[in-house]
Amino acid sequence: MNEDGSLVRLENIHKWFGSNHVLKGIDVTVHEGDVVAIIGPSGSGKSTLLRTINLLEEPTEGRVLFDGAEITDIRTNVDEVRTHIGMVFQSYNLFPHMNVRDNVTLALRKVLGMGEKEARERAHQELEHVGLAEKADAYPGSLSGGQQQRVAIARALAMRPKLMLFDEVTSALDPELVKEVLDAMRRLVDEGMTMVVVTHEMGFAREVGTRLIFMDQGKIVEDGNPREIFDAPKDGRTRAFLSHVL
């Protein structure tokens, strides 16, 4: 941990896609143990913001600090940094040519250099954790969306990351499959994982989030306690958004 307890610090982040100014000067600090929910209308830049944290998007301007080190520095070994930051995507992105076990063990073996046996054991642990140990030999194509997403969570957790990023992980799921994924995330919160969650699940954001960020047009509009923001939004845009989605 850093001396001030911050795990991630974004300083004055700007992101341009061509002439499109997507992030307009973002400053955020995420502390260890935070569960930050990011909400906002589509196109507000919330996914892009999330993806700058593990540098899947390189900010056009500004600095990203992880665990006290500036990872936007060109000399940073980004691959090493990413082993400490787990990410789960909207479209699961499991590797379809590998079975579930190999999906989970690939990075353990090829990045962390873990032995076959140890990797299998850890995969078993993590899959058991999301209730899918018996699917280890199945291929992703034969699993439901909810099961695939839970495997994706297990795959990210197997690296024992310090931080987990969730990018609209329930948006592609059929309604009846959303709960199993949210339950897996809740357990993670209970275990004290630091999480940044871009989501449309307002209930989830309100109940388990320790912090809520509302974004609009590339800027952070509100940042604070979820219950307070849900009950009494200060900004007119937040009010308008919440009245649409609640």
């Binding site: 992105n93 990075a107 690296m159």
Partner: peptide, 15 residues
């Protein structure tokens, strides 16, 4: 091959 495959692999720390 979908872009998400590369992103998932890179996010796990694969070069």
């Amino acid at each position: 091959v979908e872009k998400g495959q590369t992103e998932a692999a890179r996010s796990l720390g694969l070069s």
